[in-house]
Design a protein around this nucleic acid. Structure first.
Length: 872
RNA sequence: GGGGAUUUAGCUCAGCUGGCUAGAGCGUACGAUUCACAUUCGUAAGGUCACAGGUUCAAGCCCUGUAAUCCCCACCA
């Protein structure tokens, strides 16, 4: 016997994955290069284009997968496998991320542990070291993807630092440079003093904190202007004081100057909307080099920018006594000195939000730096145009609007990072001593060289690297091997599946860059998943100790169980709870399916004649299951079409368990239809395969009559059945359920063994005596002779009695009365509906008819129940 | 300040274009059991669909308002 009594995933999963991978079935059938086998000069692929493509959001190359990856793979692989069964040339392209900043942080910590710092090495040395570090750690993640069943095309795995990625990034950058979309600007950037790098706006986290607002007097002849600030230490960088133009209090001061405290400087008073008359004193000190708003005020009024805090967080360009102090020390000293000079005018506690480094939590210091920026106006405008044109369908739908809203307010994109671990920015600066007419900066791909020479002029490499999102934004282009001069059947991607949290950081940028490079949107649909929360809906975090490791669950319950479990109760864009229980439910389904197969194989084995392959339906249970399976296939297909994964899994669960096993297979213990058993089992196995690939394949390989891999089977065709016969089985289900329910409700235990069933004038029952007896377990079913006796069942169109003594019926009286009342209430509701002339007139005809039929049925039922009650 | 969500059974969630007599899993209660499966089988209890109005023959679903919870963006001198 090939089938053990329970399914042990650990015994099958890795072998199955190995066999799949070795067979090459995960590779796309169509190439990305032109094919002309028939020699007609036309690309043959155009005719046979039937593709389904998707890229995997690349997990960190040297990390481990977390629960979010588990969900990602469950979603993406289900789609991939579904469309593969549907006959598409599927291409699920795996990736690995160099995870610029993340990896750098880990590496730098490592370096520090060994007593070194980044400053001891050149950028090239650091890059080489991190490369080795990553290479050492690499591979785990890829094994874990396999364990989760990801049916991706491994030969096409793209690492974000691969040569072709860098190539594409440089090509795009060059195009943008030539198009004048790249500029070098001295701007304020979010700078983390600990990590010594700049961040994009999107990478900083704001937190509400308590702070102090100090009032400081800026004097002038004949008075003083009191300003409010949370950062007194930056006053040395003040180049103006702003007041609101409508603020009557300060009207006369506009255009005059005031004395900058603790210095002998005079700074102007300017009128600017930025000053809010309601806040503080209504007068704001302007420090363009250390505050984002002040920077803008400075631009409007052409104010100088004086940097007073250096990258290491100490004071520069300040009076002698403050130089070299840390910002915090300087603040203390300044406050003390202000008090000493009687310029301190009080303080109050406030709450304000402060930017922090998302990795280390250090307060972000806005820092004046020369950086590379992308002018996003054109990119954003084009993206908005295509989005408003509905060229990309979003799941959930509302994200389309959210994205457009974001793009409308997008600021220029800082793409420089001061981290060695990344793609070098291919820009070179003219050496200082080269006084020629040549441009200051030139583009060149030779980033492996520290300096280059062009037309006799020496240029020195910019040491910065690209923001990871700049290269990631071209991921669909790179992964599908898209080129300018070649038709590509896999671009645009059919779908982009990723986390809702990176809608702005990644999805927005892929759309902008995809359009810029290829002129087409990079994908047709976007599915965004939310966070996986713990069982109580709380965010998982190490500090809370509620982190669930997907691989632990895979080991414990199997890969399929994990996939089924994590898809359950999940819908697009929502943060949703997850617990081991749902994985257990998934495990149970796998085991159920295993045992279903075990039973079917057993019946097939006993079959004496070699059965025909062609099935026919011979009795109503068989017609019924065909109808139900067709219905199930319809629902699964509809669900997959609109990314309702949980619903697809749910429908399959119900169909397999409650319909196939509980009713159809039970009925097959009476009538055995071997060809149909084979056919229907194949149907449910294939339909479940996208979600539970391993157990379905394990069964497929163990069954005696199946061939090849289920992973490349054809999606099942609809089954043929007789509709009337199928409907009759529905009646039989109602009869059996009523018998079971009534037997349970009767006093005593083991009732099903005690009481026989009596029927009168009922062909459905008469024709199915054995089946009903098997399903209800009653000892006998007899034709009623003479007057009715026993307990009449509350069924509309059947004359069925349980052969029980009068006293047992009496004990059942209360239940009977209750039942009559319940049916009465339902009848009243239906009658009320029919009494409403508007309903009869305006509701669709079929509903009115349904209501009428319902009334008749309930009336008949009540009269029968009443007769029964009268007999007692 | 701007934007986006959520609120349905004890818990976690479905309920797509209004037709609902509101579903599932888990949990609970009761019962079963050599003969595919205790990772099992059967039966049942459990809901003012957050609240208040409105539209409609008909509202969990649409509209208006309220409350609670959450997220994102901007601002906070």
């Amino acid at each position: 016997m090939k089938f053990a009594s329970s399914y042990e995933p650990g015994e099958y999963e890795s072998d199955i994955y190995g066999a799949w991978e070795a067979s090459g079935i995960f590779n796309p059938k169509l190439t990305t290069k032109p094919v002309d086998d028939d020699g007609d000069g036309l690309d043959d692929r155009l005719a046979s284009r039937n593709t389904y493509s998707m890229v995997m959001p690349p997990p960190n190359a040297n990390g481990n997968l977390h629960i979010g990856h588990g969900l990602t793979i469950a979603l993406e692989d289900s789609l991939t496998r579904y469309y593969r069964l549907k006959g598409k040339s599927t291409w699920y392209i795996p990736g690995a991320d160099h995870a610029g900043f993340e990896t750098w942080v880990v590496y730098e910590k490592n370096l520090e542990k060994q007593g070194h710092t980044r400053f001891e090495y050149s950028r090239d040395e650091l890059y080489a070291r991190v490369w080795d570090f990553v290479a050492e750690q690499r591979g785990n993640m890829e094994l874990q993807l396999r364990a989760l069943g990801a049916s991706c095309s491994w030969g096409d795995l793209t690492f974000t630092l691969d040569e072709n990625v860098v190539d594409r990034v440089y090509t795009t950058f060059e195009k943008m440079w030539n198009d004048g979309m790249i500029y070098r600007g001295e701007k304020l950037v979010n700078f983390c003093p600990k990590h010594q790098t700049a961040f994009a706006d999107i990478e900083v986290e704001h937190q509400d904190e308590k702070g102090t607002l100090w009032d400081i007097a800026y004097t002038y002849d004949g008075g003083e202007l009191v300003v409010s600030t949370t950062r007194p230490e930056t006053l040395f960088g003040d180049t103006a004081v702003a007041v609101n133009p409508d603020d009557k209090r300060y009207k006369d001061l506009i255009g005059k100057t005031v004395r900058l405290p603790l210095t002998d400087k005079e700074i102007p008073v300017v009128a600017d909307e930025h000053a809010d008359p309601e806040y503080g004193t209504g007068a704001v000190k302007i420090t363009p080099a250390h505050d984002f708003d002040d920077f803008e005020v400075g631009e409007r009024h052409n104010l100088p920018r004086i940097q007073v805090i250096a990258e290491d967080g100490t004071m520069i360009n300040v009076p002698e006594k403050y130089v070299g102090l840390t910002a915090a020390e300087c603040r203390k000293q300044v406050l003390k000195d202000l008090k000493g000079e009687d310029l301190y005018r009080g303080e109050k506690k406030i709450e304000h939000s402060v930017a922090h480094c998302y990795k280390c939590g250090t307060t972000i210091e806005p820092m004046l730096k020369e950086q590379w920026f992308i002018d996003v106006k054109r990119l954003a405008a084009t993206a908005i145009e295509h989005l408003e044109n509905d060229e990309i369908k979003f799941y959930p739908e509302n994200k389309q609007k959210v994205l457009i809203n974001y793009l409308k307010n997008l600021k220029d994109w800082n793409i420089s990072r001061q981290i060695p671990w990344g793609i070098a920015i291919p820009m070179f600066k003219k050496a200082d001593d080269a006084a020629t007419d040549e441009p200051d900066w030139i583009f060149d791909r030779r980033t492996h060289l520290k300096e280059i020479e062009k037309a006799g002029v020496k240029y020195i490499r910019d040491e910065d690297t690209f923001d990871t999102w700049f290269s990631s934004s071209q991921w669909p282009i790179v992964c599908t091997d898209w080129t300018e001069d070649n038709f590509n059947p896999y671009y645009p991607l059919n779908v982009m599946e990723t986390g809702a949290d990176i809608l702005f950081a990644w999805v927005a940028r892929m759309i902008m860059m995809g359009l810029y490079v290829t002129g087409e949107v990079p994908f047709k649909e976007v599915y965004l998943h939310g966070l996986v929360l713990d069982a109580h809906g709380k965010k998982m975090s190490k500090s809370k100790g509620n982190v669930i490791n997907p691989m632990d669950l895979v080991t414990k319950y199997g890969s399929d169980a994990f996939r089924l479990g994590i898809l359950r109760g999940r819908s697009a864009g929502m943060n949703q709870a997850f617990s081991e229980n749902s994985v257990i439910a998934g495990r149970n389904l796998c085991n159920k399916l295993w045992n279903i197969s075990r039973l079917v194989q057993g019946i097939v084995d006993e079959d004496e004649e070699i059965s025909k392959d062609v099935y026919t339906t011979l009795n109503m249970g068989e017609d019924w299951i065909c109808r139900e399976l067709n219905d199930c296939l319809d629902q699964v297909e509809a669900a997959m079409q609109s990314y309702r994964f949980a619903e697809a899994v749910d429908v399959l669960y119900q169909t397999i368990w409650d319909k196939y096993a509980d009713w159809f297979l039970e009925s097959q213990k009476v009538f055995k239809n071997v060809p149909l058993l084979k056919k229907t089992l194949e149907t449910i196995l294939i339909a479940l395969h996208p979600f539970a690939p391993f157990v379905t394949e394990a069964i497929w390989q163990n069954l005696s009559w199946t061939e090849g891999f289920i992973a490349t089977a054809n999606w099942p065709e609809k089954l043929k059945y007789d509709a009337i016969s199928a409907a009759q089985f529905e009646s039989l289900i109602i009869i059996v359920s009523e018998v079971r329910g009534t037997l349970q409700a009767l006093p005593g235990t083991n009732n099903s063994k005690k009481y026989a069933l009596l029927y009168d004038n009922d062909s459905l029952v008469e024709d199915n005596l054995l089946l009903i007896r098997t399903l209800t377990k009653v000892p006998a079913i007899n034709a009623l002779e003479g007057a009715p006796r026993g307990l009449r069942l509350a069924l509309a169109n059947h004359e069925l009695y349980l052969d029980v003594l009068a006293e047992v019926v009496k004990a059942y009286k209360d239940s009977l009365t209750e039942k009559i009342l319940a049916v009465g209430r339902e009848l009243d509701a239906l009658n009320a509906r029919m009494m409403n002339p508007n309903y009869v007139e305006r509701a669709p005809e079929h509903l009115v008819k349904e209501t009428k039929d319902g009334i008749k049925e309930k009336e008949a039922l009540i009269s029968r129940l009443k007769t029964q009650l009268d007999l007692i």
